[in-house]
């Protein structure tokens, strides 16, 4: 068993202890409301204790038969995760639909689309069609931003 095999059980263990700690910080409900039932903190703590038992079993399982090593993801995967962060930043800072169009275009290129014009048209036409569908047919109002401020007036 390698040290790297302990990363997953380790992360879950740390997570479980954090949840238990946070649960212990929760307010206590007056006994007249809780009655014969349990405090709101009890259930998450109970869950995390089960989780810790399961992690123990998982570690034992890894000890018995070590898991296969996982190859590192290609740059497209890490790039896509970064694009999700960029999407968050652009939505809050610029505009929801501008963010969708930009991220779509960058994702097409990142994933190997060599026809720039095709990628550009897909990333422009799709958000416009989706906007028309949701705005006109489903009557959804989207968050304001650079473009939608201009559209909504």
């Amino acid at each position: 068993m390698k040290i790297s095999d302990l990363i997953v059980p380790g992360v879950i263990t740390v997570f479980s202890f954090i949840v238990i700690y946070l649960s212990l910080q929760l307010d206590l409900s007056p006994p007249m409301i809780v009655g014969d039932s349990m405090q709101p903190r009890a259930f998450p703590i109970f869950l995390m204790i089960i989780n810790l038992i399961l992690v123990g079993l998982l570690t034992y399982q890894f000890y018995q038969s070590p898991p296969d090593s996982i190859p590192l993801e290609p740059f497209q995967t890490w790039g896509s995760i970064i694009l999700l962060v960029i999407f968050y930043g652009m939505t809050t800072g610029v505009d929801f639909f501008v963010a969708i169009a930009v991220v779509m275009f960058l994702m097409c290129i990142l994933w190997g689309e060599k026809r720039i014009l095709v990628a550009l048209s897909a990333s422009l036409v799709t958000p416009i069609l989706i906007f028309v569908l949701f705005d006109q047919v489903l009557q959804i109002r989207f968050p304001r931003g650079l473009l939608l401020d201009w559209y909504y007036g």
Binding site: F87, F96, I100, V103, M104, F105, M107, C108, W111, G112, E113, V118, A119, A122, S123, T126, P127, I130, F131, F134, I140, F142, P143
Partner: peptide
């Protein structure tokens, strides 16, 4: 490379 960016757009707008 074209399909999944479109799915992305539907996923975020649909959830909003």
């Amino acid at each position: 490379s074209l399909l999944w960016p479109i799915v992305f757009a539907f996923a975020v707008v649909g959830s909003y």
